[in-house]
Design a protein around this nucleic acid. Structure first.
Lengths: 342, 342
DNA sequence: TTGAAAGCGCTAACAT
DNA sequence: ATGTTAGCGCTTTCAA
């Protein structure tokens, strides 16, 4: 007896055609108030919901956005970064009444099986690509499938795409100048992976800042993989060279660095000042609390969604790159309060 | 000239009917090797992908699973828990060639707009509901829409549903016995929110364990909201009562508690031993490193996906509750090595 | 303001 | 092994 609920059936019960029901459901004008009310009450009492697939087929739009995270390293998800990013993205997605499809790549093998599903027609209206490493093939696929997309981070190609990024370079430069301003003379760098644009930009920004301050790195550079352990190992090596300041390109690596410093019997910040990048860690999770170059991750995510939406709508047509500024948040690990007191 | 790519068009180019193309694309048997090869090469060179919406409409299945996280508190996402859970879920989802739709609730207002999209036909094949608070209305909706679903956590109703949970109660009990075994006599509890089943179970488990050890809590109970700050505040209050052991129902609250203890001039673990629940925090993120009741979050996520899949397939028909054991991971904060040394 | 009718691209039952 | 055909439920002209 309970026939499948569809426009036709709702129309039958309300005494109108399926076209009219469709108009009501989609909030189109040109429906008389009485008719509208009648249809709406039938919809309400039956709990009718239009079939998403049918809608997608007929209208060529789905109301679903995709978020692609190629996290070669599972450990990436221990990073507060992605949680925060997803929060921003889903918030903005909810706001425009769409839903979010998450594509998490594990290993290389996944690529072959996931990419097709990302570019399949009728599933997504648009895609946000994040954590791009150099030479990511996905972008070419998306372009080929003329699927609207936005990149979070700096695209590695000069090719023009829509993107949202933070000023990694400027932030890292600020870190160098801040440390120098505190009187530190022997800075060291724990860089992020050089196959990521964020890693590259933070490195070059810091190097630039060090030079601008009239100092030199003298080879005091190590590269980590974003994790605590890699930061610790990098710091252990660097300590042999007696730095009095360390800039770690992520909060997590900074935590490892601090651990290495204190375990070496040195004091942070007295002997070695530390500044990190991200500013996402809860302050209590590190002692001393980390001075950090904070990036507005949540805003980046929200902005990416809004930008993507306008690409989908055709409002935005010429590629633009939005860059958010970072902010220096001074806490304890850089030893700054000593300076302020004096 | 580039007409829309579809089964018909591929068939035309390969000299077969659209049915045959469909069979090839879906890997069905009963296709001659030559035909199959011919079709596959056309598919490959055209980059053809079947339309997801059309497929959903015709087959009544979408290949998409939904994950619902009612995170009233945005801060929830600072918790390593959800990242890890999503990792497990997407991993298993990829494995069975499906994709994951993420529904993050912000505030109450979102409910009205999100629930309909979760139960809309033609969008999802099934749903995983997590972080359920008491009296969650979503479950009733899902049941009404006869949408297959699995609950992560213990459902609050006795009503029979498919669910995957960890042994919160047993884990918390173990914490109590461990602390007592180390000679602690004045345990205290920093409980998780009592509108969550995890919060309730961890509390009752600890209370039970304390009693089993012949000790008493004497009102040394405070309730936090999972965050570092709440843990710290709870500990500050509890310290007035001179506990010699604290069980915090989450890693993050434990971090706050340790901070409160050391800032009060006391030593952890010498004066106050601490045991946490979760075991998700990187050890370096707390000093002393936290002894913890570790829960296998990733496995829970993977299992939930597999269970949901079998509900969708109709393989699983009578509701079952899977419960994973927890594991006591001893590090420094409980002062255990002192005992072992003696 | 409303209805009729033609697809959207696919699957599945049936026929051959 | 392959083709034919009839929908799936919706949107969208086009008429009325």
């Amino acid at each position: 007896m309970s026939r499948r609920l569809n426009l036709e059936e709702i129309g039958r019960r309300a005494g109108v055609s399926r076209s009219t029901v469709s108009r009501v459901v989609n909030g189109e004008p040109n429906v008389s108030p009485q008719t509208k009310k009648r249809v709406e009450s039938v919809v309400a009492e039956t709990g009718f919901r239009p079939h998403a697939g049918a809608r997608s087929l007929a209208s060529n739009s789905t109301g679903v956005l995709g978020l692609v995270i190629p996290s070669a390293v599972a450990t990436l998800f221990d990073d507060p970064y992605f949680g925060r990013l997803i929060l921003g993205i889903t918030g903005a997605t909810n706001e425009i009444q769409m839903t979010l499809n998450l594509f998490l790549f594990g290993d290389q093998a996944d690529d072959r099986s996931i990419i097709p599903r990302v570019v399949a027609p009728g599933l997504l209206d648009g895609v946000i690509v994040t954590a791009t490493t150099m030479g990511n093939p996905l972008i070419e696929y998306l372009r080929g499938a003329d699927m609207p997309f936005v990149v979070i981070g700096r695209p590695d190609e000069s090719a023009s795409v829509f993107s949202v990024d933070v000023d990694n370079r400027g932030g890292a430069r600020t870190a160098a100048l801040h440390l120098s301003g505190l009187g530190r003379k022997r800075p060291a760098l724990i860089a992020a992976p050089s196959n990521t644009t964020a890693g590259i930009d933070r490195r070059s920004g810091f190097v630039e800042g060090v030079a601008a301050a009239g100092l030199s790195l003298d080879g005091r550079i190590r590269e980590g993989d974003w994790t605590e352990n890699s930061g610790r190992k990098a710091a252990e090596e660097l300590l042999a060279d007696r730095p009095d300041a360390v800039f770690a390109a992520s909060d997590r690596m900074a935590v490892g660095a601090v651990r290495a410093i204190t375990e070496a019997g040195l004091s942070c910040p007295d002997d070695v000042a530390v500044v990190s990048f991200d500013g996402l860690l809860h302050p209590d999770l590190a002692s001393p609390r980390l001075t950090s170059i904070a990036q507005p991750v949540r805003e980046v995510g929200e902005r990416a969604v809004r930008l993507l939406k306008s690409v989908i709508d055709g409002t935005a047509t010429i590629p633009e790159s939005v860059v958010y500024p970072t902010e220096l948040v001074v806490r304890e690990s850089c030893g700054s309060e000593l300076v302020e007191v004096s």
